[in-house]
C-alpha cells in the first residue's frame, strides 16, 4: 500500500536550532532518506519552504481568491513529506517513527486511495469527458 507521511514541525523550534544542531538534524534526514531508498520503501519526498511562504487559493463563483498563509494557523506546520510504499499500516508506522521530525514534531500517516480497480472498470471516455 502507498502512504503519504506528512511532516509537521514547530518552525520556531527548528529556527532556534544552533548551526551544529541543525546540521546534525539535516544529516539525520539524509541518512533516513538513504535508508528507506535502500529498503525499497521510498517513492518520493520533499522538504517545503517555511509556512510564511504559503499562499492559499480558493475558487468561488468563478473568481479566484488568493490569501497569504495556510488554511489554518496551528503551532505545528506542514514542513515536508515522504511518499512511501509499505506492507501495511504497522510497516508504515515503523517508517514514520524513524523520520527525524517525529522526535520534535509529529508525522501524520495517510493511506493513499488506490483507484486502479475503478480506472479499469470505467471506460477511458468518461474520464476525458469529465476533464
Amino acid at each position: 500500500m502507498k502512504y503519504l507521511c506528512l511532516i509537521y514541525d514547530d518552525e520556531s523550534k527548528v529556527n532556534t536550532m544552533s548551526k551544529s544542531e541543525s546540521d546534525a538534524f539535516m544529516g539525520e534526514y539524509f541518512q533516513f532518506t538513504e535508508a528507506i531508498k535502500q529498503s525499497g520503501h521510498y517513492l518520493g519526498g520533499e522538504a517545503l519552504h517555511p509556512v510564511h511562504t504559503a499562499t492559499t487559493i480558493r475558487m468561488r463563483n468563478g473568481k479566484v481568491s488568493t490569501t497569504d498563509g495556510p488554511f489554518a494557523e496551528t503551532k505545528e506546520q506542514l514542513g515536508g513529506f515522504y511518499f512511501i510504499e509499505a506492507r501495511d499500516l504497522n510497516d508504515a508506522i515503523q517508517i514514520a517513527a524513524r523520520i527525524p521530525s517525529a522526535k520534535i514534531g509529529s508525522v501524520e500517516v495517510r493511506p493513499v486511495v488506490d483507484f486502479t480497480a475503478e480506472m479499469k472498470a470505467a471506460p477511458p471516455a468518461s474520464q476525458t469527458a469529465k476533464a
Binding site: 502512504y3 509499505a86 506492507r87 501495511d88 499500516l89 504497522n90 515503523q94 500517516v109 493511506p111 486511495v113
Partner: peptide
C-alpha cells in the same frame, strides 16, 4: 482503508 494488518505485532512492537 488504512491497511491495519491482521497480525500479532512483531516482538519489537
Amino acid at each position: 482503508d488504512a491497511g491495519i494488518p491482521y497480525e500479532v505485532p512483531s516482538p519489537a512492537d
